[in-house]
Amino acid sequence: MTEYVKLEVRRALRDPGFIIMGFAMPVLMYLLFTNLGVGGDSKDKADYQAYYMIGMAAYGALGASMGIGTGVAEDKGHGWLRQLRVTPLSPLRVVIGRALTAGVTVLPAICAVLLAGRLVNDVHLALWQWAATVLLLWVGTVPFTLLGLGNGYGLTGQTTGVVSTACMMGLSVVGGLWVPIDAFPHWLAAVSRWTPTQRFGRLGWSVLDGHAPTAGTVAILGGWLAVFAGYAVLSYRRGARTA
């Protein structure tokens, strides 16, 4: 299975779509939105640059983890999932291998934005805060990896790309990764609090504030994890059999 993960990581890193969605876009958006037309005193600006760094790192990680599903759908279209079923690699290991691949590829996506924050915007955090942010955001991608896998196994290649991108954009916007939830109308902020992406962002934002994620955040993310896991299992059962 290590060989499978190696193969898939290599393939992901050669995918221009993955590089754009997982690295280039989040870093570019981060640098643009934290430097263009940002007024206020320097304290506000520094806070905003740190806050937005988390939002964009989360957004990049979201893109990288959900991109896994697009890869699965592409493989299915090539008859590759079927080919794998006639090798000794068991179907379960194929799925786990894919999920682990996501685990590897989201790390550079998270680190790219954090590095941009540190090096370009001069964001200052304690060492433990950097480490905790990377770790929490990394672990927090698991529900989104499952959502991506669910899309990939359940849908056809083209539909997966569209649906995954829509999920990613929608969840990012409503979850307040692009625009802080404070700027939302009241009703939208209320919805946002229940989204997995808002809670995903809070994993990092709580570190900025110097404390651990709240029980509510962990519980809501846990709930979404269960929902997306169920979705992935259902899609897999439906899609992989016929693949």
Binding site: R11, W80, R82, V86
Partner: peptide, 11 residues
């Protein structure tokens, strides 16, 4: 070697 199988790209 299955019918309609195509090798996966980017490897």
């Amino acid at each position: 070697m299955l019918q309609d199988g195509r090798p996966i790209p980017r490897a």
